[in-house]
C-alpha cells in the first residue's frame, strides 16, 4: 500500500512537471519534481526508502517517456540513497537542507543520465546541456524542494500512524 501511494505521489509530480511547469519553464528548464521527491523521501525515511523511491520514480518517468527505459533509474537510485544519509550529518529541519540537497541531487542525477545516455546513443552534448538546462533545472528544483519535503513528511507521518512504515529502516 505504501509503495502504491508513493507511486501515485510520484505520478502526480510527473503530471505537474510535464504539464503545469511546461508553461512555467525558465530558459527552457523545468523543476525536476521527481528527483525532489526522491530526495525528500530519502531525507524523511532513510536510505533504503530513498533508493526504492528512486527506482519507482526512474521507472515511472522512463515508461511515460517511452525511450531509454531504465536510464533514469541509476541516477535517481543513487541520489535517493545519498539523501538518506543526510540526516546523519546535518540538522535536516533547517530550511536550506532540502533546497541544497535537491539542487545537488538534480545536478548529479541529470549529469549521470546524460553521461550514461550518451553511451547508449542519446547524442546530447555534455557541456551545453549542463549549462543550458541542468543548472537552471537544479535552481528551479531547489526552490520547489521545501514544498515537496513538506508533502512527503506528511505522507510518511500518515504511513507511520497506519503502521505501514517502520522508522529508521536501513539497508
Amino acid at each position: 500500500m505504501r509503495l502504491l501511494i508513493l507511486s501515485l505521489f510520484i505520478l502526480g509530480m510527473y503530471i505537474l512537471q510535464a504539464s503545469f511547469f511546461t508553461h512555467l519553464a525558465v530558459y527552457g528548464a523545468r523543476p525536476d519534481l521527481i528527483t525532489a521527491t526522491v530526495v525528500a523521501v530519502g531525507i524523511t525515511a532513510g536510505p533504503f526508502e530513498g533508493m526504492v523511491s528512486g527506482i519507482l520514480g526512474g521507472f515511472i518517468l522512463d515508461l511515460l517517456r517511452g525511450t531509454f527505459i531504465g536510464l533514469s533509474v541509476p541516477g535517481k537510485l543513487l541520489v535517493g540513497l545519498m539523501a538518506g544519509f543526510i540526516p546523519k550529518r546535518v540538522y535536516v529541519d533547517s530550511w536550506w537542507v532540502p533546497a541544497v540537497s535537491a539542487f545537488v541531487a538534480t545536478l548529479l542525477d541529470q549529469s549521470f543520465f546524460l553521461i550514461l545516455g550518451n553511451s547508449f546513443g542519446l547524442d546530447q552534448p555534455l557541456w551545453p546541456s549542463f549549462r543550458r538546462l541542468i543548472i537552471a533545472s537544479g535552481i528551479y528544483t531547489a526552490t520547489m524542494a521545501p514544498l515537496v519535503i513538506r508533502g512527503i513528511r506528511h505522507l510518511y507521518g500518515e504511513f507511520l500512524n497506519r503502521g505501514w512504515f517502520k522508522e529508521q529502516r536501513l539497508l
Partner: peptide, 23 residues
C-alpha cells in the same frame, strides 16, 4: 532494458499504454 529501448520505438507495451492513458 536501456539497450533494447534506445532505438526508434514505434510500439509500446501494455504497461506503458495503460500508464499513459491514466496520466
Amino acid at each position: 532494458l536501456i539497450y533494447s529501448t534506445s532505438g526508434n520505438r514505434f510500439q509500446i507495451t501494455v504497461v506503458e499504454s495503460v500508464l499513459r492513458d491514466v496520466v
